[in-house]
Structure formats: structure tokens, C-alpha cells
Design a protein around this nucleic acid. Sequence first.
DNA 1: CTTAACAGGTCAACGGTGTTGTCATAAGGT
DNA 2: ACCTTATGACAACACCGTTGACCTGTTAAG
Lengths: 243, 243
Amino acid sequence: MSDRVVPPAARQRRRPTRQGVVLSAELIVDTALRLIEEHGADALSVRRLGRALGADPSSLYRYFRHTDDLMLAIADELIGRTLRSWRPTGDWIADLRDLGLRMHAGALAHPRAAVLSAHRVTGRAHEIQAVESILGVLRRAGFPGQEAVRIYHAFVDQALAFGALDSAGTALPRAAREAEAEVWRTTYGRLAADSHPHIAATARHLVTTMRTSSYPAALDLFLTAARTRLAELRAGTGHPRPH
Amino acid sequence: MSDRVVPPAARQRRRPTRQGVVLSAELIVDTALRLIEEHGADALSVRRLGRALGADPSSLYRYFRHTDDLMLAIADELIGRTLRSWRPTGDWIADLRDLGLRMHAGALAHPRAAVLSAHRVTGRAHEIQAVESILGVLRRAGFPGQEAVRIYHAFVDQALAFGALDSAGTALPRAAREAEAEVWRTTYGRLAADSHPHIAATARHLVTTMRTSSYPAALDLFLTAARTRLAELRAGTGHPRPH
DNA sequence: CTTAACAGGTCAACGGTGTTGTCATAAGGT
DNA sequence: ACCTTATGACAACACCGTTGACCTGTTAAG
């Protein structure tokens, strides 16, 4: 039953739902995002989404082949929103840092969707545009093709992976999250110096550092390494390994 | 119904299953891990697990309150296994790379558990041991306290985040995973050079690079940056920003 | 203006899921 | 040998994604 979905361009007979709603792929994606935001990732099911839209669940299969298809559409919408807010300046390091922080912030703004979509390749318009833009930044900076792709891959995955990780953290029930903060203060803050010398010596820093995201620090380390790599390439000493 | 679970120590009447199996929390965790490895991540359901054990699904609720509880027990077991397999040598870069790769591999071997447990702080024995070990490696390498904590945080989160990201990828249904590989080959491999110059110029590399995990590359970049940072600290020029 | 085609909404059903209230029984202590 | 009770089994509940068949309003052609 794969001809159930009609490509958006060919749609014309917009018959309203029994409850008076006129469906569209856009409306479905927006509603799904709202649903995820308001009631958590588990709230996203075909049946609930149908109910929220005022339509029979099976109607959605006129717009998306299956749930996965819908997830990809949601992911692409998120990519689009992030990309539209980005203003590259020409300074490749600053631009990548800015984009990375925006991707991370975008994920945190839609934690549940981020967790569900971070690992998907959509192949849709917004994603393609993002790939093209980032590759452009790297190649203009001077990275040759293969190296640009490797850096691109690591950069994007790092932003997505940390976005999903930190999102999953904020998606925890409030009680569980506070319990985790407590663990750092009490458990790790009180270990004896003779049994756990390194933890005891840095306990003060652990308590303060571990409660915030490590992504900004990881991103800066990443950019440092990329700059180092570019310098090596320019010098002609192309050994990519760190030692 | 939370008193359904009896703490392991209090168990005494080990009544065998109708099919002759004597249940235990350990046996359940081991069977779950085996199930995940043999039949993929989505093969793990309470009902399937019951079937694999030769017991009624509801019996499992005598040992774990709910599925999440079971997942945490599995995760804890995984941390232990990873750490036990690690043999630090004294070369801090090699040791961190080895541990990072082991953490990543451990996550990939048990995708479902990795995804669910990556963002949790347990405060349990194995975790504490890991923190102490890694901090020790960094401080012996010469990083001062605060800097060691920052590097530690970024290192661990990066390993966990990539582990979860890549795990989520392998946890996809086979069809969806193959569809993603196709997207890189067809969609990205065929974009016109005038509309998408950078993608077109690197299409060959994209197709080959994007289907593998970027974690090894990201890890090497991370270690490169850490080495750079250490050199800066030794030289006394402590500006942590990449430009 | 009528009419016929068909896009698209609806209904009912299938086989799966996690979870729980209830019951039955074998193990263990006495 | 008996009694208690831990623990396994059963049946049921409310969900889930998905699909095949049906029905009906919209639209384009005549």
C-alpha cells in the first residue's frame, strides 16, 4: 500500500475532516511538534496525533507512508528552523561555533523531537541545504574535499549527539534530574581522599562543572583541533593522528 | 503495585517455571543482553524475553518494577564489563583513546541499553571507579584540577553521546537503515554542481564517509585539542579559545 | 449545470506491546 | 504434616502501528 501517499504537488481535493479540519503535511508536522513539546515524546503516536488533529488516525497514512516518514519530516523542519537563524560572516571558526551552538540550542528547545530525530538522515530540502552550507564553509577555509567531509561529519554528529544527550537530560522528570544533581554534591563531594584521591582533589570543580552541558567546551576543543589540522595541511605535514 | 518486587537478598523460594527454568535477576539480565545481541534491539520486549526464558511475561515483574528498571540493570552491567576490559598503560593519549573506543563499542553492542542510560548519573560503584580512573589519567598527564575536570566532562559526554547516537542508528529497523544508505548514494550523489557545488565536489567522499561512525575521527580531534591545550598550559599561555 | 471519477477521510480489524489484578501451588519453616 | 507465603501463571486492559474496504465530497470535463 505505497501508493496511498500522494505527492504534495498533486494534492487538490482538500476535503475537510469530519470535525472540520483541512489536513496538510505541514499542519500534521506542526501539530506533532506541539504534541511532543507539550506532552512528551511518548505522547507522539499516530492515534494521539489523529485525535489532536481531529481526524481518524489512518488519515495520516495519506500523507506519510509510516511513522518513520513523519519523524523525518519533523527532523527536517527542525533543521530548517535552525538554519534560517544562522548568519555566516566568513570567519569559518566563528561561523562553525555559532552554528554548533544554534543547533545545540535548537535541540534543547525541542528536546523530545531532538532525541527522536538526531540520528536520522532525511535527504530532504533543509538537510541538503545545511550540508551544502557547512561543506562550503570548510572548503573555503582551505580544507581539501576528503578532509572537509571528515570534519563536516564529526562536526554535525557532535552537535546532534550532544543535543540529543543534553535533551534527554532535560526530558527527565524533575525529581530524577534533581536527584542527579544531588549525586554529584553528596556522593562525589564526599569521597575520601585516600580511596579516591583524584575525585577528592577536584570535587569542588566536579560539583560546579558537571551540572552544565559540556558541549560548548567540546565544541571549542573540536575547533581547536580543526585549526591545528588545517595548519598541518598547509605545512604539508599531513599526519592526522594526535601523536 | 510496587511491592511486587522482592529485593534479591530476601529471595528464597526458587520455584521453577512451568518449563523448568529457575529465574533470577541475573539470568534475566543475561538473557536480555543475549536477546539484544542475537535478534537486534527491537527484539527486546517483556513478552519475547519471557518466551526466551521459558516463563510467563508477567513473572518478570517479580524482579523488575518495569522495563526501565530492567534497562538500568542492563546498563549497570555494561559499565562494569567495559571498565574491566580496559588496561591503561600510562600513555595518557593512548589510554583515553582506548577507553573511548571501548565505551563506544560497548554501547554499539547493546544499543537499546546505551540509548536509555547514556544521560543518567548512577553514582554507583562502577561509575565512581570510572571517574576516578579518568581523572587520574588527566591529572598525571599534567592537567590542573579545573582543567582536568573540564576535559573529563567533555571526554565522557562525547563518548556517551556518540555511543547513543550511533546506537540509535543501529537500532533502526533494517529497512530504514538501508534506506539511509541509499539516500547518500542517490540523493546526495546526484545533486547538480551548479546548484550544490560543494556537495557535488565531495559526493564521492560523502558516500563513503557518511555511512561509518564519525566517533573515531571526533575522538582523535578531541585528543589533538587536549594535547594542544596541555602544551599551552605548560607554556603558560592559557587562552582556551580556539582563536 | 450535470455528472462521473477519484482523492482522501473513515471504519473495522489484525497482531503486537507493557502492565496489573487475581488465582493457584510448591517450597520452607515449624 | 501443616500452614504461610513467595512466586509463577493466567486473563484482561488499554494502548500501539498498519492496512484493506468502504464511502463521500470535490473537481474537472462535457
